[in-house]
């Protein structure tokens, strides 16, 4: 029962074929990093232009690597949001076209749901589980109690965690994307040399805030004048330690909150691009152990944006009978939980 997945919501053009047996038959990602790096961030119009040039041939390649034709597919799944709308449209239109020609079900996948369900592709994790979703655009804690059933416990009130990494990297001249660069520099630094704030630490609720941390990094950089490599490394280590403390604190609270409704909660899952950060994984490992939870993190290549997760979300939705009409609209904003507060960051 293979499903084709298409992902074009940010700066990766991706196509993949995944079977219901959880076999990833192909998983292709064309990164646009070199196109965006000179700008210090993703330029939406450049991203959209790359997607439309590449997605059709990438889909053919994904099928050919999987050893399948369009007719062998059981459904076509594409990210329909949230994300950079120009790119989302490209992937969704491609999926619609394939679906009408081959009379296959279309599944318009929420990109966040794809991240949220990836762990069920890679590991035997039953519902419910506590999910920390951390990426360049998102930072939230959710209880996942079924396909399409998400309850948000907390989210960021300003920057996403990946955004905070990117902005820190930018302030320090580490280039784009910032996450891997900050992590690498931090490995050579002393986290105790600079004292940075831990926003939200100890506060009730499970929300995040990272703008104060970012500001503190900026002030420190400015005070340093012309930072040396050791300054940069130490500051990265301090930033990462502070971010880790905040995330750990929020997760502990979220676990307590989630357990009230789900006493059987056993797993803490981390997903999204920032889940590729090894330091953060270590912190979460410790937090999970203390809280009697098992941490499960999909491998980094399935945490950063990819289409295998979209195909898998397609399989989960197909099983649940959650199909979409050919007129389905792409969505720039699309919170996972239907009752999310208006204006809150998706």
């Amino acid at each position: 029962m293979p499903v084709l997945g298409i992902e074009t919501s940010c700066d990766e053009t991706a196509a993949a074929v995944v079977g219901e047996d959880r076999r990833v038959r192909s998983n292709l990602v064309l990164s646009q990093l070199v196109d965006h790096a000179p700008y210090g961030g993703v330029v939406p119009e450049i991203a959209a232009r790359r997607h439309v040039d590449q997605i059709d041939s990438l889909v053919l390649k994904a099928l050919s690597e999987a050893g399948l034709g369009f007719g062998d597919l059981d459904a076509v799944a594409a990210t329909a949001g949230p994300g950079l709308i120009g790119g989302v449209m490209v992937g969704l239109m491609t999926a619609k076209a394939i679906a009408v020609v081959h009379r296959k079900p279309l599944i318009a996948v929420n990109h966040l749901e794809a991240h949220a369900l990836t762990v069920r592709l890679t590991d035997d994790v039953p519902f419910p589980y506590l999910l920390l979703l951390v990426s360049g655009g998102h930072c939230q804690l959710l209880v996942v109690s079924g396909v399409g059933r998400y309850r948000r416990l907390g989210t960021t009130v300003d920057d996403a965690l990946g955004e905070a990494f990117d902005k820190t990297a930018k302030l320090l001249g580490l280039g784009y994307p910032g996450g891997p660069a900050v992590e690498k520099a931090a490995a050579e630094g002393d986290p105790r040399r600079f004292s940075l704030p831990r926003p939200m630490l100890g506060r009730p609720g499970c929300d995040f805030s990272f703008s104060g941390l970012k500001t503190a990094v900026r002030t420190t950089v400015e005070a340093l004048g012309e930072p040396t490599w050791q300054d940069v490394a130490d500051l990265c280590a301090a930033f990462q330690a502070a971010a880790g403390d905040v995330v750990a604190d929020r997760v502990v609270r979220a676990a307590a909150d989630a357990r009230q409704q789900h006493p059987d909660l056993r797993h803490l899952v981390v997903a999204g691009g920032v889940a590729a950060n090894a330091f953060l994984r270590q912190r979460l490992e410790a937090v999970a152990e203390t809280g009697g939870l098992t941490l499960v993190a999909p491998p980094p290549r399935l945490c950063t944006d990819n289409a295998a997760m979209v195909a898998w979300a397609g399989i989960e939705r197909l099983r649940a009978g959650l199909l979409d009409d050919i007129a389905v609209a792409p969505r720039a904003r699309w919170p996972l939980d239907a009752d999310a507060a208006a204006g809150a960051k998706a």
């Binding site: 959209a48 997607h51 059709d56 449209m89 239109m93 076209a97």
Partner: peptide, 16 residues
Amino acid sequence: TGLRIGLAAARGLAIA
């Protein structure tokens, strides 16, 4: 955006 909608659809139909 309009150009990409048309071209993504056309090229999708073409490969399919």
